[in-house]
Amino acid sequence: MTCEKIMAMTKEQVLEIAITAGKILLCSGAETYRVEDTIVRMCNLRGMDTVSVFCTPSVIIVSNEVASGFTCMYRVNRRGTDLGLISEINKLAFSFYDWQYDYEETMNILREKLERPPRPYYVETISSGLAAACFAVVLGGDVYEFIGAFFAAAIAMLVLKQISPFRPSSFWETTLAGVILCAVALIFQKIIPGNSMEKMTVGAIMPFLPGVAFTNGLRDYMAGDLMSGNTRVSEALLLVGGLAIGMAAVLGIWHA
């Protein structure tokens, strides 16, 4: 018997472990089928063969095909992107069939991942600035545009991180990012006259484009999760619109 530790847990405990894992996956931006697959696989190991999972980007519902079954539901309000967490949970789910920990230990592992403190600001600030600056060079920029794009994206990301405790909607967050990065790029163009506004701005918007939502949405479509696919692709379009509105506001004031 490979999974005696799992058989020693009750069904409710395994279900709780599974839904916590699913929660972490969805909150860190995994695709829908990965969440559903993880929960179903974990539950099947405990002999719960009739478990059904329905997951969209904002809710996980785990229920039973039997009429007298259970229902668990988890509502997700805020999603981030953390590919490292997805990969950790993925490893955990794949090693679950010869699991060596009991319920308490497993829940402690999962809780540690769930309540992991956010990374320090400077990591995300510097990496988004570096990414933006490199894109400015990819588009044919020189050293000054490299610096301009770096500061435009880094300042915008820093402000977003500062206001994130207030939990703004992601649309307004992206719009604000567009306003800030466009304004910073304008200032840099004024300071160093030869600088191309275009290269700096296009470089700087790259960290704020919803690449994750877009890619995951398309993968959801192909996995047959049409509702999640629609949600994510329209989220991506909304965020691109927000970014464009933010930049257009600054440029409009400038041109006027």
């Binding site: 894109f135 296009v202 890619t215």
Partner: peptide
């Protein structure tokens, strides 16, 4: 032995058409 998205999400970003998007918005303005 990692999820596919670990590679494909960052990898796709250099191809994203940021430049035409910016130009379109600028010409609209």
């Amino acid at each position: 032995k990692e999820p596919v998205t670990v590679f494909s999400i960052p990898g796709i970003i250099p191809l994203v058409p940021g430049l035409p998007l910016y130009r379109a918005m600028n010409f609209f303005m």
